[in-house]
Amino acid sequence: MASTSTLQISTDRSELDVPLIYRFLSEQSTWAVGISRAIVDRAIENSLCFGGYVDGRQVAFARVVTDYATFGNLVDVFVIPEFRGRGYSKEIMKAVMAHPSLKGLRRFMLATGDAHGLYAQFGFTAPQRPETLMERYFPNIYVS
Rank of each mutant, 00 (worst) to 15 (best):
E15N: 05
A69R: 09
E82G: 12
Y142I: 07
Y88Q: 03
K94W: 05
V96I: 11
S29H: 03
S36H: 05
T30F: 02
R86S: 02
M97L: 14
V79N: 04
A120F: 07
C49V: 10
R106T: 12
I80K: 03
G87N: 14
G104R: 13
R23E: 11
A120R: 15
A38K: 13
L25Y: 00
W31R: 11
L133S: 12
F78Q: 00
G87A: 07
A69H: 05
Q8K: 10
A69W: 04
R63A: 01
M134F: 14
N46H: 09
I9Q: 13
C49F: 10
P130A: 09
L110N: 04
T66G: 03
Q58K: 08
K103T: 13
M109C: 14
G113W: 04
F24Q: 05
L25V: 02
S5F: 11
L74H: 03
R37D: 01
L102T: 06
A43H: 08
T11Q: 12
F122G: 05
A43I: 04
G34P: 01
R13W: 00
R13V: 12
G117V: 05
A95W: 01
D114I: 11
S3R: 09
L102H: 06
Q128N: 13
A2G: 12
A69L: 05
S29Y: 02
V143C: 13
P139R: 08
L74F: 04
G87K: 14
L133I: 12
F108W: 02
T132C: 05
Q58N: 06
G113C: 11
L16E: 05
A95V: 07
G123V: 12
G51N: 04
F78M: 09
K103I: 11
S5G: 12
R13F: 10
I80S: 01
R37I: 02
A38M: 13
P127D: 09
I9G: 11
P127M: 03
Q128R: 02
L102W: 04
E15S: 11
S14K: 15
N73Y: 13
D76T: 03
A38P: 07
C49I: 01
V75K: 00
I80C: 03
L25W: 06
R129L: 08
L105I: 03
A115K: 15
S3V: 08
I35D: 04
V54C: 14
P127G: 07
Y68S: 06
S29E: 05
L133M: 10
A126P: 11
T30G: 15
A2L: 13
V79M: 13
M1D: 15
I39D: 07
F138L: 07
P139L: 08
G52V: 06
E91W: 00
Y119N: 12
A95H: 15
L20S: 11
R84N: 10
S101F: 07
L20R: 09
E45Y: 00
F124M: 15
M97S: 11
Y88K: 05
I44H: 00
E27P: 02
I35C: 11
D12R: 08
D41P: 06
E82H: 13
V40W: 00
E135M: 11
V77Q: 00
L102A: 08
V40S: 01
G52R: 03
A126N: 02
Q58L: 01
R13S: 15
L20D: 03
T11P: 01
S10V: 13
Y119G: 08
S101H: 12
T125L: 13
D67H: 09
F83G: 01
A2F: 14
Y68L: 10
V40T: 07
A115Y: 10
F138W: 04
V79F: 12
D12V: 02
